[in-house]
Simulated assay, not measured.
Amino acid sequence: MNMFDMGIIPTMARTLRTLALGFRDLLLPRGCAGCDAPDEVLCPRCVARFDGAHIRSLPVKGKTCCYACARYEGASRRAILAWKDHGDEECDGAFACCLARLALKVIKVIDTNQTAIDDVQAMPQIAGMPDIRGMRDVLLVPAPSSPASMRRRGRWQMAPLAKRTARMLNDSGVRTRVCPILRLEGVRGRSVQTSGSLARSKRIQGHVRAVGAIDDESALVVIMDDIVTTGTTMGQCVTALRAAGARHVVGLALACTPVRR
């Protein structure tokens, strides 16, 4: 049995990483990703900004909604951009906590070994929430990123967020697993460079596909994304997941852009 099989090398690597991060924070103290408050990844005031439940209808057939933690403005916008475009991976944990809290507000789980979650019992029924009585599992599906985006950022940023959120939901008694089956292929240009809902829809039309099938029709499938603007990307994800066998689909996002009337 070698040192890797015994777990010694992975343990040493984690210890060295922890020490390196400690020295970095000592020499270069960080600030809050949203407001630059000292010695905070996301300060309590900015965390509170992500404690909402903003509803956005999705442009798909049938009544399907997305629920966002915050509005994409001010400190919330700065925090997401620091995480998404400037590599602030320390925000993974803070954002996963925000998404898990929102999930507990909008997911009602009835399992053979448990009753509905207490947090949901205390919340009013949210419009557009699917009827999931008898549901066994929750499947978290990270919204896809294009290969060019993943090369630019060095990772599929929603994947680690989905894993952390699933871990927190499982710890809260919600039987959850990550199902990363969506892919975005053949898309050119960045979504922020495309203006208008019609242009955004045409940009990704037919480019979102599922590489596997949903193996549990009674599961609640939750699409996780960072920002919802027009809802076209998440709507395409809903369509792809329904084609893959999903019956109950809902969206979850860190933020949604304010609706301009």
Rank of each mutant, 00 (worst) to 15 (best):
L184I: 00
L102M: 10
C179T: 08
R49N: 08
E90C: 11
M123K: 02
D111F: 02
K105N: 07
A94C: 14
M150T: 10
S197M: 07
V109K: 04
D226T: 00
R45F: 08
R242C: 07
V187P: 03
M224G: 01
M123Q: 14
W156Y: 09
V228P: 03
A162T: 09
A219S: 13
P124S: 12
R188F: 13
R200N: 07
C97D: 15
D88I: 02
L184Q: 07
K202V: 08
G34D: 01
C98H: 13
D92K: 08
A243K: 14
A246V: 03
E89I: 15
C46N: 07
D88K: 07
D118T: 11
A243S: 15
V211N: 05
L99F: 11
V228H: 02
A255L: 05
V120R: 10
A94F: 00
R155C: 12
Q157K: 13
G173V: 05
V250M: 15
S149Y: 03
R190K: 11
A166T: 00
V249M: 03
P180K: 04
G87Q: 15
C179R: 04
R49M: 12
R78H: 11
M123I: 11
S201N: 09
P44E: 06
L241K: 03
R17Y: 14
V238Q: 02
I181G: 00
G31M: 08
P130G: 00
V141A: 03
I107S: 06
I132G: 00
M12E: 12
T257R: 12
D36T: 15
D39H: 13
L198Y: 09
W156Q: 13
M3P: 03
I110K: 14
S218K: 14
G128L: 11
I227A: 00
R136F: 00
C35Q: 12
L161D: 01
R155W: 11
D36W: 10
H54C: 03
C66A: 14
I227C: 04
L26Q: 05
I55P: 05
A75M: 09
Q125L: 13
T233C: 06
I80F: 08
L252M: 02
G206K: 02
G52C: 07
G93K: 06
R242S: 08
M3I: 05
V60Q: 01
K202D: 10
E185A: 06
Q157V: 14
R247A: 03
R155S: 12
P160M: 05
R152H: 15
D215F: 13
G186W: 02
D118F: 10
M1T: 14
R164N: 14
G31T: 07
C91T: 11
M224H: 00
Q121L: 14
A79I: 02
D25R: 15
A122S: 08
